[in-house]
Nucleic acid binder design. Structure first.
Length: 866
RNA sequence: GCCGCGAUAGCUCAGUGGUAGAGCGCAUCCUUGGUAAGGCUGAGGUCCAGGGUUCGAAUCCCUGUCGUGGCACCA
């Protein structure tokens, strides 16, 4: 770098950067210019960036700041790169917290929700997000959920919605049903209460109709994290196997017994046939056999909760029935009822091969049933191989298996399926772990299901002309249970078919239904139809979706399903809603406790550093505190930091910069006061650099080195944003700022001043996505035209991103022994000449014979010598 | 149990075959009219361990250790 020869002089009295003044000013300027309105311009490529919309809990927290700042970087970057950008915001506004607030505080859920929305809208607007607010809606708006009711009727007409009596997950605290996806380790995802099993009449959606597509199409989602695709694949749990019938030997049931297996290769290792306790055959047996009935009752009692089912000991009951082995008519297998067999997976019946399945083995060891190995592991001898307490599930060669002997597992499976099919006893089958999606919720603060129950006509969907079905105005929320059910008049109506009296459905839809199409509604939030097809065709799919990993299965699976269903109904053209998905990490913070174990919030803590150790104490009184683990910000551990307080002290830009700079976006980031102070210092130093630049820059050639550094910076930051490595992009900006400080405006040569101007012009635009307010202020300071939000992204010249002369390290036998200078792009032969002419290298090579010289262009030279 | 991910400076993390880096923190010094501030300079690393491939390994392969995420009686 060609620095100025004059000593560094501090410019006289610099105006301190004041975010409190500049930030609101620029937000107003953007609003006045309507800068973020999404316009479907056919001349431009489109880009739809969306963050998972928030639940209006009342306050914006640091997690929101991170989530929406990440999306905002993309939105601003793509806009500057010439895309038509859609970046909308809405509210996932139905759900239990509003009803809970109603119960606890006697407020109206609707009013509570809209007040929260108003406050959070204000907070989010303060963040300076490049959002088209004209498209905003809440899922509890009649204009939204009324359209959703129409979609529900469409899906119902397609046979994708049905009603069934089924065993459901009942949350005793929230007093409602939960989908399988909402039960985590046997507990409600929201209430954390132990989930019970109940039999109820429920609305469900046939997501299983799309199970194959939902797995197969994962392969097309190449801009999704592998982890999320894997989680969905595991959740859907597609397995290929064989469904076949056992024929009863002697007295049995009238019907054959159908089982499902993924291991037809192990049929010759069969030990017994098992059925679930709630299998129809079990009921048939229980009718005649009191002992069987008692056993079934035991199974039911011992399995009230999911958690208990998972940990229960395996128990069984021998029914006395016998079935014939499909390959050996004389071989009879006993039929047992067993508690570990699930009625709602496969056929609710299995054949057990204990040697190669741990569950079956545990069961057979307990009840003294035979264990015959039929797969011989590599390297084992048939005469000595034996099964102990561990089933063998690895690869091997079939034995003890007649015509399957000598085959590998896959060939044996194929052969067994072939034979069963030829016998007419069954066929190869695909079975899924995925269950249909139970969407009924016994809560009032949700989207009413547009259906009535008529004594004459049964379950009758309402005509679309009867929509929307709205909540009663005088709904009484103060008690537990379903307020719609309790309301004195609301549910009484007439049947659209016969005109007779009918009762409205009082269940409402799972809020995940609300969020499974909102992204399509954003294409035109005010359309008459639920989805404006033309607008959706332009904007969808979402190019970049951003949210937490906690929705990897729930929301993201439902949204994919609904998109496919709506595509089949002709309402959408895309079959996948989100082309790109990014799952961001959480915001964490250290925890602090008093001696008595009470948690202490960070705002009350100060630190003292004694050498290498850092201690915490109460600001008020100085009581020493213990510093605990770094955990997700949560109210219970009091390790939260309120965004609005940070905005007040350091400004919005510093807060945004810090949450973006500290970690890669997909990882957790640790909030710290020193970190945000560092970001704040950066903001100030950036402003100093712009403020010290003279307004009248002389004409002339720019300093070459600084110019090259600028082009290199533009390339690096552009690539960093493109690849979601925002933290590295920001690190490059920090480095570059240091470079600018090393080439100050005061006393600079004209060449430096010109290069600085070019650098600052690029810099103002490069920081735009991260610190948008500061960017505008800096842009104006150096005489930029218009606003940064209207400016083009800086371009770079690839040729200028490299130095003209390269310093190449020279290794001898892999160890660094010196360096040489060579022109960029120099050919190996030329580099070799330079190396061999170098005195220092020659000295190192004295007495050695050069065997080989490896030149890596522009990088390094390695001499192999002996 | 099954399927993943990770381990690099005190902290948070870049770096995917070629000279070990950034920010923060820490230390020294300067400034004391930006002052509950600013600046200069610097120290600090068995790239988790062991083995392999290679002219060359933080990077690729194998084994192990530790941490962590998801799923889990799904036949």
């Amino acid at each position: 770098m060609t620095g100025s020869p004059t000593p560094v002089q501090r410019p006289v009295v610099m105006a301190r950067y004041n975010p409190k003044e500049t930030e609101p000013k620029w937000r107003k300027a953007w609003t006045d210019a309507d800068a973020f309105r999404a316009v479907a311009d056919p001349a431009k490529p489109k880009y739809y960036v969306l963050e998972m919309f928030p639940y209006p809990s009342g306050r914006v927290h640091m997690g929101h700041v991170r989530n929406y700042s990440l999306g905002d970087v993309i939105a601003r970057f793509k806009r500057a790169r010439g895309f038509s950008v859609l970046h909308p915001m809405g509210w996932d506004a139905f759900g239990l917290p509003a009803e809970n607030a109603a119960m606890e505080r006697g407020v109206d859920p609707r009013a509570w929700t809209y007040e929260n929305i108003a406050r959070m809208r204000q907070d989010l607007k303060q963040l300076g997000l490049a959002i088209d607010w004209s498209r905003e809606f809440a899922t509890c708006d009649v204009e939204y959920y009324g359209k959703q009711q129409a979609l529900f009727l469409d899906l119902m007409a397609r046979g994708l919605v049905y009603r069934k009596e089924s065993v459901v997950n009942w949350d005793p605290v929230d007093q409602t049903v939960l989908a399988n996806e909402q039960v985590i380790d046997g507990r409600g995802w929201r209430s954390d209460a132990l989930v019970e099993k109940r039999k109820l009449n429920q609305w469900a959606m046939r997501i299983t109709d799309y199970a194959d597509q939902l797995v197969d199409d994962l392969a097309t989602l190449d801009r999704w994290p592998d982890k999320v695709r894997l989680m969905q694949e595991n959740w859907i749990g597609r397995s290929r196997g064989l469904k076949f019938r056992f024929h009863f030997a002697g007295a049995g049931s009238d019907n054959d017994l159908q089982v499902y297996t993924t291991r037809p290769d192990t049929l010759y290792g069969a030990s017994f046939v098992g059925i679930a306790a709630d299998h129809p055959l079990a009921a048939e047996i229980a009718a005649k056999d009191p002992a069987a009935a008692a056993f079934i009752e035991t199974c039911r009692r011992g399995a009230a909760t999911e958690a208990e089912i998972e940990t229960a000991e395996k128990i069984g009951y021998d029914t006395g029935l016998r079935v014939k082995h499909p390959f050996e008519p004389d071989w009879e297998l006993p039929v047992w009822i067993a508690n570990f067999i699930l009625m709602d997976y496969g056929t609710g019946a299995i054949f057990a091969c204990p040697a190669h399945d741990q569950r079956d083995l545990d069961f057979c060891r307990k009840y003294g049933l035979p264990v015959t190995p039929v797969v011989l592991p590599p390297g084992e001898a048939p005469s000595t191989f034996a099964i102990g307490d561990e089933a063998y599930t690895g690869p091997g060669i079939l034995y003890n298996s007649k015509e399957l002997d000598g085959l590998d597992i896959e060939s044996a499976k194929a052969r067994a399926i072939q034979r069963i099919e030829a016998q007419g006893d069954g066929e190869g089958a695909t079975v899924f772990r995925l269950r249909d999606w139970g969407v009924s919720r016994q809560r009032a603060w949700g989207c009413p299901i547009p259906v009535v129950h008529c004594a004459t006509d049964g379950v009758v969907p309402l005509p679309k002309s009867a929509l929307p079905v709205t909540h009663p105005a005088d709904i009484e929320f103060g008690k537990s249970g379903n307020a719609l059910e309790r309301h004195p008049t609301w549910k009484h109506t007439t049947c659209p078919i016969c005109g007779g009296p009918a009762t409205r459905e009082t269940d409402t839809l799972d809020t995940f239904v609300d969020s499974s199409w909102y992204f399509a509604r954003f294409a035109n939030s005010h359309a008459e139809e639920p989805i404006d097809k033309a607008a959706a065709d332009y904007w969808l799919p979402v190019d970049q979706y951003i949210g937490g990993i906690e929705h990897a299965v729930l929301h993201l699976l439902y949204a994919r399903f609904v998109t496919k269903a709506l595509a089949d109904d002709g309402q959408l053209s895309v079959r996948e809603p989100f082309a790109g998905l990014f799952t961001q990490g959480m915001v964490t913070h250290e925890t602090y406790r008093r001696q008595n174990g009470e948690w202490v919030e960070p705002a009350l803590v100060e630190f003292v550093t004694e050498g290498a150790t850092r201690r915490a104490r109460l600001i008020d009184g100085g009581e020493p505190l213990s510093i605990g683990d770094i955990e997700k910000m949560s109210k219970s551990k009091k390790n939260t930091v309120a965004p609005e307080e940070i905005f007040e002290v350091y400004g919005v830009d510093a807060a945004r910069l810090f949450v973006l700079s500290d970690s890669p976006p997909e990882r957790d980031t640790q909030w710290s006061t020193s970190g945000v102070q560092g970001a704040w210092r950066f903001v100030n130093r950036v402003w100093d650099e712009f403020d010290s630049q003279p307004a009248d820059v002389p004409a002339g050639e720019p300093d070459d080195a600084l110019r090259r550094a600028t082009h290199r910076l533009v390339k690096q930051v552009t690539e960093a944003i493109d690849t979601f490595r925002f933290n590295s992009g920001i690190a490059r900006l920090y480095e570059f700022l240091n470079l600018l400080k090393a080439n100050p405006a005061a006393g600079a040569t004209p060449a430096i001043l010109v290069a600085r101007h070019e650098a600052l012009s690029a810099f103002a635009r490069l920081i735009g996505p991260f610190t948008p307010h500061l960017a505008e202020e800096c842009w104006v300071r150096i005489g930029g035209a218009g606003m940064v939000v209207e400016a083009e992204w800086p371009a770079f010249d690839l040729g200028l991103t490299e130095d003209a002369v390269k310093i190449l390290p020279v290794q001898v036998n892999g160890k660094r022994r010196g360096e040489i200078s060579a022109p960029a792009g120099a050919e190996p032969a030329d580099v070799e000449r330079i190396v061999l002419a170098d005195a220092e290298i020659a000295q190192r090579l004295e007495g050695l014979t050069i065997r080989k010289i490896i030149v890596v262009k522009d990088r390094i030279v390695n001499i192999v010598a002996a």
